[in-house]
Amino acid sequence: MQSEVRLVEAGQMGRVAYARVAPNEDVVLSIEKLCAAEGFRHAFVRGALGSLVDACFVAPGGGTRQVRGPAVEIVSLAGEVRQQADGSLRAAITGIVADTEGHVHGGPFVAGANPVCVTFEVTLEEWLPSAA
């Protein structure tokens, strides 16, 4: 079996930003705001730590799936932020959380529906795509 490599997008990594998000701020929207504040047009979420009041994921089939807290712990978080054609920033964030009983849930987070509980810290790395 022969491996095939396809170049999707050429570019290089830029600056790194570390930030703390305040309680009751939405995780996804806060990541977009942080990128805008730092002037990142494109970025990768490299790490995160914290808890949410509740978590809300996009469910298979297009609905949503709610995980009730309080204090839903973030186990893992990854994603990217991309500048849209209109200049706005859009974050696509996927994560895994543990609920108050220790059950694990995951998927893409719904923007505007994942408020920080006590604290949330995130590392963002700027992506600088090469001109085509």
Rank of each mutant, 00 (worst) to 15 (best):
G50F: 05
L34A: 06
R41G: 10
I74Y: 01
V45Q: 01
E121I: 03
W127Q: 02
T119I: 11
V28H: 07
E126P: 06
C35H: 02
Q2W: 08
G95I: 05
P115H: 06
D54H: 11
M13H: 13
A43I: 04
R6W: 03
L49W: 04
F57L: 02
A111R: 15
E32P: 07
E125V: 15
M1G: 15
H105A: 01
A85W: 01
D54M: 07
S130W: 07
A85E: 14
Q2P: 15
F109D: 05
R41C: 12
A43H: 04
F44H: 00
L128Q: 11
P129H: 08
V16I: 15
L128H: 02
A113V: 00
V110W: 03
G102Y: 14
E73W: 05
D99N: 14
L89T: 09
E101W: 10
L29T: 05
V110A: 02
L124N: 02
D54E: 12
V81A: 06
T64A: 10
E73K: 09
G79Q: 05
D86Y: 11
A113I: 00
V21R: 02
V110T: 08
I93E: 02
P23V: 12
A22R: 09
G79M: 08
A111L: 03
A113G: 01
G14V: 10
V81N: 00
V45I: 15
A55G: 09
T94L: 05
N24E: 13
V67M: 04
E80D: 13
A91H: 01
A37L: 11
F120P: 01
E126M: 02
V45T: 11
I96G: 02
K33A: 14
E25I: 02
V97W: 04
G87P: 10
V75S: 07
L34M: 10
C117Q: 09
F109C: 06
L89N: 05
A85L: 12
Q84N: 03
Q83K: 09
E125A: 14
G11D: 06
Q66T: 08
V53F: 03
G112E: 10
T119N: 09
G69I: 06
A17T: 01
N114D: 07
L124D: 03
E73Q: 12
E125I: 13
N24T: 15
P129W: 06
V27W: 00
A10D: 08
L124S: 08
G39W: 06
A71W: 02
N114T: 11
A132W: 06
F57Y: 12
I93W: 04
R65F: 13
N24F: 02
S130M: 14
A111S: 15
L29H: 00
G79T: 12
V75F: 01
V8Q: 10
V75M: 12
V97Y: 05
I96N: 06
